[in-house]
Design a protein around this nucleic acid. Structure first.
Lengths: 139, 139
DNA sequence: TATTGTTATACTCTATAACTATA
DNA sequence: TATAGTTATAGAGTATAACAATA
């Protein structure tokens, strides 16, 4: 196939997301929800629009995503008293438990991908090359 | 971000596709159309469903895609006389000219990506790692 | 006047079922 | 009966405009 980089990148991304989807089907969790919960767990109190922007999700589309997470009792919106227009996001106690399970399931998925690559060093090489494409200076 | 491989892969793929889209906006060509024209140019006479499968596109969704390409006069469906259910796909003379222009525009895009990676050797390393994920044995 | 979250809407991709014409 | 192409349709994901509450 001709447009080598873009085409292979897309195929590989679809493969990894497919494995993610199957691995996480028991938790009924999609990649976007996984990312949101991970960020809330690591940095509680961020505003909706901050998390949306970190993930490249339009804030309008973030609403339904967050509705689902909140309806499942995993995280909640709190009116910030410094700026009462914004909602700061926090895990519920149940969400904290869920994130622990989630992390274990994630390790299973990620280890499978690392094994396909040939080990952690190869994973690091891949991440470094992807960071070059993204112009991210080492993070 | 936690789900490192999948997340970075997705971000990098979106970046490359964005560059592709901008580069090809003058030709009004999407990645899927590019792929289809490239395959028809390299292997004329394949059936619709063969090309669709090579690209991971459902044959039902291939119809509108091919309609657009045909309407632009770049390629055409021909009834195969061995099996008159199937359509074999061929470039038109105009399509052959278009594919030449397309290849030049593609080189511009691909070279920009290769430069970001740090050169052709780094591109090769990336492709090799992506092939490992895909389980493709060296191609 | 500008920003945050929200609603409504539209467009693209993708997936499935059912039809037709051929085999 | 099975297959290639087709149609219709539904679901995600994504993008924009406009509104209410608040700044």
């Amino acid at each position: 196939m001709a447009t080598i980089i873009g085409y292979k990148l897309r195929r590989a991304q679809l493969y990894v997301f497919q494995d993610f989807l199957e691995t996480f089907s028991r938790l009924k969790l999609r990649p976007a929800e996984f990312s949101v919960l991970t960020i809330i767990a690591n940095t509680p109190g961020l505003k909706q629009s901050e998390i949306a922007e970190m993930l490249g999700i339009k804030r309008a589309n973030f609403v339904a995503l967050m509705d689902g997470i909140e309806k499942r009792g995993l995280a909640e919106r709190r009116k910030a008293d410094t700026d009462r227009r914004s909602h700061s996001l926090h895990l519920t106690p149940q969400g904290t438990k869920f994130v622990r399970k989630m992390a274990a399931v994630w390790a299973e998925h990620e280890n499978r991908m690392i094994a396909r690559l040939g080990g952690p060093e190869e994973r690091d090489r891949l991440i470094e090359l992807l960071d070059r494409l993204l112009g991210t200076p080492e993070n």
